[in-house]
Amino acid sequence: MSKSVTKQIANEVDDVFDDVVHNLKKLAKHLGEDTTDALSRTATSVAHSAIELIEDAKAQTKVIAETAGKEAREHPAATAAATAAMVAAAVGLIGLAVAHRRKPAA
């Protein structure tokens, strides 16, 4: 996995996390304006907790992407073998799904 691919993946994950955090903050602000009932207070609390969780996940994703890129550069043969195994597994699962769909219903 090249550095540019690793950076691209990390940037795309960051964008998704940023969108989710933005929407959760809007939700929390909207709910925060009228937290007179227990459900609204709970939803606001959940939104704030989710924001914290996503921000932690975002930081961890950067570390994982950097580590994966480093490992792929250090062990290209193992990376190629793992990729081939994943492709073979995906093809096998697709084949199984196609075979399953072709079976007549009992």
Rank of each mutant, 00 (worst) to 15 (best):
A28Q: 07
A90Y: 10
H48V: 09
I64R: 01
K26D: 15
V21T: 06
Q60D: 11
V16W: 08
H48T: 13
V21C: 08
T83I: 03
K58S: 06
A59G: 08
Q60T: 01
A50V: 01
V13C: 05
H22R: 14
R102H: 02
K70S: 12
H48P: 00
V16C: 09
V91C: 04
V87N: 01
P104E: 11
M1I: 13
A28G: 04
A59P: 01
A90I: 09
K103Q: 15
D56T: 10
D18E: 07
V16A: 14
V98G: 03
A43E: 03
K58C: 01
K7Q: 15
Q8A: 15
A38Y: 06
V98H: 01
K70A: 15
A68G: 02
L24V: 02
A105N: 04
L93C: 05
Q8G: 09
S49Y: 07
A88W: 03
T67S: 09
V87Y: 07
T6N: 06
R41L: 12
A84G: 14
T79L: 05
L27T: 12
T67D: 08
A78W: 03
S40C: 02
A97T: 12
S49R: 08
T6E: 12
A47D: 02
A89Q: 14
E66P: 00
A97E: 08
A59N: 04
T42Q: 14
V63A: 14
S40K: 07
A81M: 04
L27F: 08
A38F: 11
I54F: 15
G69S: 11
E71V: 13
A43H: 02
T67R: 02
M86D: 13
I54N: 06
A106E: 10
H30Q: 13
A82D: 10
S4T: 08
D37R: 03
L31N: 08
S2C: 11
S4L: 11
D18A: 08
A80K: 15
V21L: 04
D37V: 09
A10L: 02
E55D: 13
L39Y: 00
T36G: 14
A65C: 14
I94S: 12
L93D: 07
K7S: 09
S40P: 00
R102M: 10
A65V: 05
H30E: 13
A105P: 03
N23M: 06
T6F: 08
V98F: 07
P104I: 01
S2Q: 12
H22L: 06
E33H: 12
A89P: 00
A78G: 12
A38M: 10
E74V: 01
N11Q: 13
V21Y: 05
A50P: 00
I9A: 12
